[in-house]
């Protein structure tokens, strides 16, 4: 009996208990091995259900648990940090044939994973709102913004923000079909999804990639710059302004 065969049998319910094990009374391990298999399976399903509550609500708990069982056998955690488990769940949902008609589900899973990453991300000291105002208007295009480590972007052809709200907050309006991009921002300890105005996703992605304010704006010509910066400042998502180094 090696840990390799033990592991294989834990993740494959059709395999018998590995050789070399007994029930302590001289009989085969039987149901006693199933205790370990059950612990592994149920604890991982529970972790996924806790991590993707809106996905679970959208497809129902029983469906969710069946799909989660398939997923964990394909993709068990790669690290003892359970807070990271499920990074590949969205991609798994996208290629799971029975879910083809729920095409928006993977993006909901991406949003829920982004919220979890944001919750555990490093703290930062937000920039004072007036700091941007002190920059000479002519120099503004050349500055780079360092954004909060807890910031995440989710870009979707589906109304992910509306779907998330509708399933999380009482009285939220019913979602209507449209593309939505979401900024996950954490002021304090609780991440919150914010609906982004047109073009702001490309603008913020540009900033995250280290582009100057001017270059980030060029990649999103339709953007309302005041609104986008206002959202970043209002959610305490800017850590630092970096001025272009002089030649």
């Amino acid at each position: 009996m090696s840990q390799k065969s033990f592991t294989k049998a834990l993740l494959a319910p059709d395999l018998p208990a590995p050789d070399g094990l007994n029930d302590g009374h001289g009989a085969p391990a039987g149901k006693r091995f199933a205790v370990y298999r059950n612990n592994v399976t149920v604890s991982l399903i529970d972790a996924l259900e806790a991590g993707f509550p809106v996905v679970a609500k959208l497809i129902g708990a029983e469906n969710f648990r069946n799909i989660a069982r398939e997923y964990l056998r394909t993709e068990p955690p790669a690290s003892p940090l359970m807070m990271l488990y499920g990074k590949g769940f969205a991609a798994f949902l996208a290629r799971f044939p029975p879910l083809a008609k729920y095409a928006y589900l993977p993006d909901i899973a991406r949003l829920e994973y982004a919220l979890r990453e944001s919750y555990h991300a490093a703290d930062h000291t937000p920039l004072a709102p007036e700091a941007l105002g002190r920059i000479a208007p002519g120099a503004l295009a050349d500055v780079r913004l360092v954004l909060a480590p807890s910031l995440r972007l989710v870009v979707s052809p589906w109304p992910v923000h509306a779907l998330w709200l509708y399933n999380k907050r009482e009285g939220a309006p019913k979602p209507v079909a449209m593309a939505q991009s979401v900024l996950v921002a954490r002021s304090g300890f609780d991440p919150e999804p914010h609906l982004l105005p047109q073009g702001a996703d490309r603008f913020i992605a540009g900033l995250q990639a280290g582009k100057t304010l001017g270059d980030a704006c060029e990649s999103a010509p339709e953007i309302d710059l005041g609104a986008a910066l206002g959202l970043l400042l209002g959610t305490q998502s800017i850590s630092q302004v970096k001025h272009e180094e002089l030649p």
Partner: peptide, 9 residues
Amino acid sequence: SHDSAFLND
């Protein structure tokens, strides 16, 4: 853990 899999038990 075994190889790259963490089994959470």
